[in-house]
Amino acid sequence: MNVFRLTGDMTHLASILVLLLKIYATKSCSGISLKTQELYALVFLARYLNLFTDFISVYNTVMKLVFIGSSLAIVWCMRMHKMVKRSYDQELDTFRHYFLIAGCFLLALLVNEKFMFPEVLWAFSIYLEAVSTIPQLVLLQRSGNVDNLTGQYVFLLGAYRALYILNWIYRYFTEPHFSRWIACVAGLVQTALYADFFYYYFLSWKNNAKLQLPS
């Protein structure tokens, strides 16, 4: 464990807490893409299959349970909770995410570290996470103005993977046989997708103005 990865995990946890705060405090999920939440739930389920088979550390197990539990709770809330689901931007959240799932699974069958079921699913979860934010970014562009908590949620979600890239660079130089090129390349794509969001987020912070994404 290194400082980049720990801050990355804490940033990821913070993004989930901000999202839970927004949904719980405002009883609204306006501006949040249900499709991105469903993709993230799938990412965690596919990636953490080894939850009960490989014990790595208490921290690792606890965080996996938190990520799986919170992502399923958010999807449940947005689909079932009568107050919350009323505020869901159904007509704006129309990105066909099933294509993302199919494409990532096909890619995982072709490009993986070992052609074994757990490894293919792991690669699938890495590729899917890289593109899972697309429905959310599309929704933000369509919905124009973004409330603060939603903006902070998306910012933290993007920042965590950028910190993971620093972690991979650090591990590459400090560990002899470290090679996570699948996660690195996917992580770079994932972070690059946030580039324009980061730019407008920075502008809104610098000018102390409302976060506006050009539609």
Binding site: R5, D9, H12, R47, N50, D54, I56, N60, M63, K64, F67, E113, K114, M116, P118, E119, W122, Y164, N167, R180, A183
Partner: peptide
């Protein structure tokens, strides 16, 4: 056999 890369990251 080469141990499958243990995925120790979240």
């Amino acid at each position: 056999a080469e141990e499958a890369e243990k995925h120790d990251e979240l």
